[in-house]
Simulated scan of single mutants.
Amino acid sequence: MPRATSDGVSIYYERDDGEDVPVVFVQGLGYGRWMWRWQREAVAGDHEVIAPDNRGTGRSEAGLPPVVPKLPRKLRAALLAGPLSYSVEGMAADLEAVLEDAGVREAHVVGASLGGMVAQAYALEYARAKTLTLCCTTHGGSDALAIPEETMAHLGSTPKGASEREVARHRMRPAFTERFTNRNPHLMDRIVEWRLEQDASDPAREAQGGAALAHDVGDRLGEIRVPTLVLHGTDDRVVPVENGELLAEKIPDTRLETFDGGSHLFFIEDDDRVTERLLAFLETGE
């Protein structure tokens, strides 16, 4: 089980063999490696695949002070959204440590939501990114469209008396369309199980949320000099689609593709079409 060390924190990653330039998949806020399983399976074989767990997620260490998880939830959440939060820049440093440990000289970096923020920061600060693919993400800052308050409240809520599985299902509801969840009950059951096995703990998820809220690289995107593919669902209830349009306006060498009616997790709901587009981009950079 390969591990890298970043600022004293052990970061776990998986590695699949392949012949072409590695593809590294960066997870969204709180989500485990399961979220990329469809694209990862399609890419593996032709490309080497690197799949790290964000700090605090899956098998990676959280790197939080030991007392923090023991604090009352409201106090803990306030601290982890502010002075004790992770930073996107720190998570980009984690990614650099993983690629250094893996001996990767260049990689296609694919990130969704918080992972897309990490991918932006990574391309700005480090030299290994060959291309970027940014899904359902934002550059942050005052001119970006914030997560709707109703969605924010839902993502962090815990229904009274709910079981662990019910909480996991409840919190991801805004990320999918009702049509998809209604048509795929067995898959949703499996996703709940994957979430319980691989997702971040509540304290780590809160620290990741603090990193996402503080993210702001809108005035630096012109410095990104690698081909970039921006993918976004038009009905994203978590990160509004206008954020994808802003990224495409500000990153010089960008292709924007929107998915009509697509949710925040459109790359799961419409995995075949997203994977086809990603593979074409990895092949040609266009």
Rank of each mutant, 00 (worst) to 15 (best):
A4G: 08
D7E: 12
V9I: 15
I11V: 15
E14K: 09
E14I: 04
R15Q: 15
R15E: 15
D16W: 14
G18D: 05
E19F: 10
P22M: 10
P22W: 11
V24C: 07
V24T: 13
V26D: 12
V26F: 04
Q27P: 08
Y31F: 07
W36Q: 11
R40K: 08
D46G: 14
D46H: 12
I50M: 04
P52M: 10
D53V: 08
R55F: 03
G58M: 03
V67Y: 13
P69Q: 05
K70N: 06
P72G: 10
P72Q: 04
K74Y: 14
K74P: 04
R76M: 15
A77M: 15
A78R: 11
S85K: 05
V88Y: 01
V88T: 07
E89N: 05
D94A: 14
V98S: 11
L99V: 03
D101K: 15
A102W: 03
R105C: 02
H108D: 07
V109L: 11
G111P: 02
G111W: 01
A112F: 02
S113K: 01
L114H: 07
L114C: 14
G116C: 07
A123V: 00
L124V: 02
L124D: 02
Y126Q: 01
A129T: 06
L132S: 02
T133S: 14
L134Q: 01
T137Q: 06
D143C: 07
A144W: 04
A144K: 06
P148C: 04
E150Q: 13
T151G: 01
M152C: 05
A153E: 10
A153C: 10
H154I: 13
L155S: 01
L155M: 15
G156A: 10
G156T: 09
S157Q: 14
P159E: 14
S163M: 13
E164A: 15
A168H: 13
A168P: 06
R169Y: 09
H170N: 11
R171T: 09
M172H: 09
A175D: 03
F176W: 15
E178Y: 12
E178N: 14
R179Y: 05
F180I: 09
T181D: 07
H186N: 13
V192D: 07
E193C: 06
Q198R: 15
D202N: 06
A207I: 05
G210M: 02
A211V: 03
A211N: 01
A211M: 06
L213R: 10
A214I: 07
A214E: 12
D216Y: 06
D216C: 09
V217C: 01
V217H: 01
D219S: 14
R220P: 00
E223M: 04
R225T: 09
V226M: 00
P227C: 02
V230P: 00
T234H: 02
D235V: 01
D236L: 00
R237T: 00
E242P: 00
N243Y: 01
E245C: 07
L247M: 11
K250G: 03
K250D: 07
R255L: 08
T258F: 03
D260L: 08
G261K: 08
F266M: 08
F266R: 10
D271Y: 15
D271Q: 11
D272L: 13
T275S: 14
E276D: 14
A280N: 12
F281W: 13
L282P: 02
E283M: 03
T284G: 04
G285S: 01
